[in-house]
């Protein structure tokens, strides 16, 4: 039996450390093998593997890169899934019986879930656009996966609430297109989240103020607003929007004020409950803890 060369031993260690599977892994290992063969021809196998770096570090860097690529792809799929579900939901509403009146509970669920889906998808898209050409830390990748997953679940809930509130008959293809895309996108999101979790399962959660990404994407100046002020502005705008929408539909002032109040309460509740998973804010105690940082 021929002895194992330093390059073979190195590649075996590298392959054992790599988490990703499939075509991208085969291409990477092949490139490393070619590189080491070239280097060994000039300076010997031992020197070639030494210059290549510790296999665990090389594997971790490559796993992180593949996870980042999958995260960006999954975000595109998630945004498409949310848009398609929006289309399917509109088709469902359009197909509802003309005299159908939605029960208040389902109507509130519908509006809140729709807004959560839109906000989570916008946050994920902004993050992915900013980081699509940069290295992504595992906490940032986990945050991206959470935002995508939340957007998809909320989009599904929006459609479910619409269906439960307004039963009717519509085109099966139109109605199924959204949920089908949501399922495909959810699979992509989970696939992207898995290597990020393996790379840094116990690491700190990322915090990414929404306006920081917007500032890098648009050429106009965007003010630096803290989470508290952002919540205040968003709540006022959402409540004013709800009031005007209801008044536009000929509701009484008292009825429109009630809708605006419900909207404001829903925005505050969503911010409190979903703010941390969406990376909008974190506890002050966590801010003081070492290692906690914005990704």
């Amino acid at each position: 039996m021929s002895p194992v060369t330093p390059i073979e031993a190195y590649l075996a260690e590298l392959e054992a450390a790599l988490q990703v599977r499939g075509r991208v892994r085969r291409r990477f290992v092949r490139e490393c093998r070619d590189h080491l063969a070239d280097a060994a021809a000039g300076r010997g196998g031992q020197a070639a593997v030494r210059a290549f770096g510790p296999p665990a570090d090389v594997a971790a860097a490559f796993d992180a890169e593949v996870a980042a690529r999958r995260g960006v792809d999954a975000t595109a799929a998630a945004v498409l899934g949310v848009l398609a579900t929006g289309g399917s939901t509109l088709a469902l509403i359009h197909a509802a019986a003309p005299q159908a009146v939605a029960p208040a509970g389902w109507a509130i669920t519908f509006f809140v879930a729709a807004q959560v889906a839109a906000v989570a998808a916008a946050l994920a898209l902004g993050q992915a656009l900013v980081l699509r050409r940069e290295p992504m830390s595992p906490p940032a990748l986990r945050l991206l996966a959470r935002r995508n997953a939340l957007a998809l679940v909320a989009a599904g809930l929006t459609m479910f609430a619409a269906g439960a509130a307004l039963p009717g008959h519509g085109s099966a293809a139109l109605l199924l297109a959204g949920p089908l895309l949501v399922c495909v996108a959810l699979g992509a999101v989970l696939r992207a989240r898995s290597p990020a979790r393996r790379l840094d399962a116990a690491g700190p959660a990322a915090v990414r103020p929404p306006l920081s990404d917007l500032r890098r994407l648009v050429p106009i100046p965007v003010p630096d607003v803290g989470p508290g002020r952002l919540l205040l502005v968003t709540t006022c705008l959402a409540a004013a929007g709800a009031f005007l929408r209801d008044r536009g539909e000929h509701a009484t002032i008292a009825g429109a004020l009630l809708t605006a109040g419900i909207e404001a309460a829903a925005v505050v509740a969503c911010f409190v409950v979903l703010g941390r998973p969406l990376g909008l804010w974190h506890h002050r105690a966590a801010e003081r803890a070492p290692g906690r940082r914005a990704a």
């Binding site: 990477f28 490139e31 590189h35 210059a51 290549f52 699509r132 050409r133």
Partner: peptide, 18 residues
């Protein structure tokens, strides 16, 4: 530069379309 770090960087540049 550790030579192994070139490949994750090249894949990243490819992801970014550079």
């Amino acid at each position: 530069v550790p030579e192994g770090s070139l490949y994750p960087a090249l894949h990243r540049l490819e992801r970014g379309g550079f």
